[in-house]
Design a protein around this nucleic acid. Structure first.
Lengths: 236, 236
DNA sequence: CTGCCCGAACTGTGATCACACATCACTAGC
DNA sequence: GCTAGTGATGTGTGATCACAGTTCGGGCAG
């Protein structure tokens, strides 16, 4: 097949289905905490909001329920999962273990470029968290950027995907709280943990990086649990 | 609403949709290696085979693709993912880390009942693997039973789910190989690793349990990689 | 005024149809 | 003889309809 070399320059046409787009839209809502635990959603309503039929939304929702990011009650009602304190604690412990693992590997094998990216993300978060009146929604994004800059450096793509799914489950709880109480950022706990993590990654100290990330997760989880930020999943 | 207390004893009616059933059927095919990497499947054909319309199959497939257990090519072709050697190695490393983590926790906090269940599963596998002509398909099931008896004892349900998804991705490669070459069982490598793991769990030695499970995974992965058991994902 | 019941509106689930696209066998043209 | 175009067939994707089940509010009976 001989043809003009100009064809080689053509960018591949992105082949995105409506279901993919719907999935991204719902994921974003969940990860950013704009969908709170217990919120119900309807296929037809979200389909109307997205301007498509219910089919793409159905597929997106079925993916999210498979990942545990959404919950279909026995009544067939569709809602954002409400975690019991026990389930939330188990999720937090899992995250501490798995994300600690990724952080340790990142510390040991990060490239100079990856380290630079991590430091940049840490600086961005610190600038926001240290400001007079931090924007909760933006803090959510920057915190996520920093964490995933670290996990991207661990060199194991499957591990990164696992963590992304864990964040989808924890996102509504964590970020709803962070949006509601951005003042917690001023306590500096997150900033301190982040600084410890970056220092450990810079020093190629795996265990220290794991400990810092785990402490960051544990601090936030403990704060939310102590505040009773979790509603019970029971109906009266 | 006052009613007879006998009603409290009634078991909940399992509300299984056709999509759930289709998901289980496909998962089983994947986990047991009866669907080999590169195999294509068609919504309409599998729907006909299951005696339902395409809708439930569509939903099951969309869940599986979200988990990475199935792959929808840019051509929209649906197939079991073909792992490159690099991707397979990354998956194996992730499994060694994550499943090692779970095994370590299981060793430290297993209950007597869980230990008994693990020992029973180990004995069942050993009996089969040590037999004259081991049945590959049955070995797949018993190996899975043993591993998940350990992971169930780790006390973190989210971690167990993560591992189940990893097995869905690795299953076609591993189990296709095991079915094709059941003679490898007679080398005793798996049996030795299993025995080490059970001993470590019995002794509540977390690091040793992690090492044994990781070695079990690593041995199998190394064997498959050395045999060139992975086809390239490229088309001629 | 309170408790119950019934019906309208809505839910997810499944089936069916329509469509754009991919694949492959085949044939016309060089 | 080999390539390029063409048609039939099958593919996933999306829309629409049908249905069983739920939810919720209004109205009737007590």
């Amino acid at each position: 097949m001989s043809s003009s070399p100009a064809l080689a320059d053509l960018p591949q046409i992105a082949r995105r289905t409506l279901a993919d787009t719907a999935y991204d839209a719902l994921s974003d809502l969940l990860a950013s905490g704009r969908l709170a635990p217990g919120d119900r959603l309807s296929l037809r309503q979200t389909a109307a909001a997205l301007g498509v039929s219910v089919m793409p939304v159905r597929e997106a929702v079925s993916r999210l329920t498979a990942e545990g990011a959404l919950d279909v009650a026995p009544n067939r009602a569709l809602r954002v999962p409400v975690l019991t304190p026990e389930a939330f604690r188990a999720l937090a412990e899992t995250r501490m273990a798995v994300e600690g693992l990724a952080a340790a590997r990142a510390a040991e094998r990060r490239s100079p470029g990856e380290l630079a990216e991590i430091r940049r993300a840490e600086a961005a978060f610190r600038a926001l968290a240290g400001s007079a009146r931090p924007d909760g929604a933006r803090a959510v994004v920057l915190n996520r950027d920093l964490h995933f800059a670290v996990y991207a450096a661990c060199g194991l793509e499957p591990l990164r995907e696992i963590i992304a799914r864990l964040w989808l489950k924890a996102g509504p709880v964590l970020n709803l709280d962070l949006r509601a109480h951005p003042g917690r950022l001023r306590q500096g706990s997150a900033m301190r943990r982040h600084a410890e993590a970056v220092a450990a990654i810079e020093a190629r100290d795996g265990p220290a990086a794991a400990a810092a990330i785990a402490a960051d997760i544990g601090d936030a989880a403990e704060f939310i649990l102590s505040r009773g930020g979790l509603r019970q999943a029971q109906r009266p």
